[in-house]
Design a protein around this nucleic acid. Structure first.
Lengths: 332, 332
DNA sequence: CCGTACTATCTAATCGATTAGATGAGAGAA
DNA sequence: TTCTCTCATCTAATCGATTAGATAGTACGG
């Protein structure tokens, strides 16, 4: 009925019970490379069901050189943006009957490499890499081992692996235009500490869009609510809070909202904020964030398609402006 | 130097180059069950390094019946509470040199079972289950296959697998006492839709704590910001917004804050809120949430200790009250 | 009635690492 | 010198599933 702990059911057990060879059982189990007579097939299926047979994927993997497992390296899954992305990636893989091995790289290139090596040793079929602003092309390690890889959110400069990312340039332009339409002349930008990767692209796009404003302020802080909260308090204390601000990430925007609120400079009355991530959570901050929404689910699915379609072109996803309250608009 | 894509290096390759048998190489690689002469060991190590040998974990797993992989079933990793928990679990496993296979169960018992079965087929060494309010004892499936399992956050009633959970009873008592100290006589509770699992325990504890108040209001909504936001707006429209509210989760609290803000009934002036999760994010809402903070990282580590220590006792973690602004207190 | 052409199955090699049992060389005791 | 012990290594079976090649059995045209 069920397999006992001490003696798992093997192909041979099923074969014995069905009175056939292991080859036939294998052919039945996976509509094998050779046909099996209908009557025999029935017997095998019955025997397998009665014994509660479960194929041993490890043995299968050893022989067929494919594990059905994909490695996912993510910078930090406890950041809601990456967490949501990771979740969609897992879902897209599950749809294709693949298992997901995850590892958090902690924003460190060293750990990224370490994880890729461990995943490679575990014989993953492919790798998905979600790097915060990594510069290191870990995909080449995978390629050297013949394992396809894809970057999501961000790819290293000059890498050969495909990249699925949001159209940061367009998103920033829309955000700047919207804040300008609200009458703001000086639009500040809150970037990350290092300014590489997509955040760098966003900063560059902002820089280009406000090229006519010599007083445009560039701010920096860590990608955490706590850091952005502290930064906002510091700016408030110095009387340097900008009127209009574009933040690189939702986490930073949320932190700014919270810090500004605490200092009696609440959005949207005293500061207009637009965030460039657009995670689902951004709809439920106080006030709700106006964002350029990245199509996280679509990006995840495209990445997986790329991985299994063996295509190697990169994709850019449009991130539409979603108007809520933090920019100063009235929600309907 | 490095292994070419078309021909990965095997034990036999190393043995050939070092002029020994595969057995000796194996003994060297894992300080095998038998000793090896120092000179030979050197030769083997050198050969392995030169060829860039990486042991094939799949082959090793087949033979040794242990994969070094642990399955993690989580209700929904895009919920920051579960996401943070999942992340700490992955970290604790990484510390012990284990890989983590994740799957999102989408709050569904069916998918939970499905994932457990797939993980079992992949020969995981152990299972960690983070179920929202699952009633189903999926650990018994694992046990039947001889795979140890542990529940974190929530365990099924009457299950045999160990459970690591927060001390909900005490947390709720502290929250109620604190709101009472603020002078609130009626303290409402926002529960989940079904009220099983830990949320049920929290609701029961609240019920006991406000037994002397016949007018205590019990509210329910989904565990999402959006649902709580909508609920708050509905209550505001009906003029039924409570003065003091304890929410089962941070997500719900955040939604209430946002909905109340939108209806001009902002916390903490018009509504005092305490949340029972206490994720790191709760410190950066507007206003910052007063919470009972669950020691997520400690819980994750204890769970993993339990798993590898083969202990099977359950643990209860104290969740201290962290006073911030949403309850009406002034932050220092 | 026989050879050709299939069809349905079986046999056994294979994937790569682990490890018990066999083998052989050298040290020390009698 | 010969026998016994140790140590260092080697040989080969094993884990469970996959699949190419061999084999038996059936059908059909000539």
């Amino acid at each position: 009925m069920t397999n006992r702990a001490d003696k798992p059911i093997t192909l041979a057990d099923v074969a014995r019970r069905a009175g056939t060879s292991t080859a036939v059982v294998s052919y039945v189990i996976n509509n094998g490379p050779r046909p099996v007579a209908a009557a025999t097939r029935e017997r095998v299926l019955a025997a397998a069901a009665e014994l509660g047979y479960r194929p041993n994927r490890i043995a299968r993997a050893l022989r067929s050189r494919t594990t059905g497992v994909v490695g996912l390296v993510v910078a930090d899954a406890s950041n809601p943006y990456f967490g949501a992305l990771a979740r969609h990636i897992e879902q897209a893989l599950d749809k294709r009957d693949r298992l997901t091995l995850v590892g958090n790289a902690d924003y460190s290139a060293d750990r990224e490499r370490h994880l890729v090596d461990r995943f490679l040793a575990a014989q993953v079929d492919a790798l998905v890499i979600v790097s915060a602003d990594g510069e290191d092309d870990v995909a080449t390690r995978a390629e050297a081992a013949g394992v396809p890889a894809v970057y999501v959110h961000n790819g290293p400069p000059g890498g050969r692996a495909p990249v699925v990312a949001a159209d940061n340039q367009n998103a920033v332009q829309e955000a700047v235009a919207h804040l300008r339409a609200h009458g703001h002349r000086h639009i500040a930008f809150l970037s990350g500490p290092h300014d590489t990767g997509p955040v760098g692209a966003r900063r560059a796009a902002w820089h280009a869009a406000v090229a006519d404003d010599p007083d445009a302020v560039l701010l920096r802080c860590d990608y955490s609510r706590a850091a952005a909260d502290a930064l906002a308090r510091r700016l408030a204390a110095q009387g340097a809070m900008p009127q209009a601000l574009i933040t690189a990430t939702d986490e930073q925007a949320t932190g700014v909202l919270s810090g500004a609120w605490a200092c009696d400079l609440p959005a949207p009355d005293r500061i207009a904020v637009i965030s460039l991530d657009g995670t689902p959570e951004s709809a439920h901050t106080a006030p709700p964030l106006t964002v350029t929404r990245q199509p996280l689910q679509a990006m995840a699915e495209q990445a997986i398609d790329l991985l299994f379609g063996h295509a190697s072109c990169s994709l850019v996803a449009h991130a539409p402006l979603v108007i809520r309250r933090s920019c100063g608009c009235d929600e309907a």
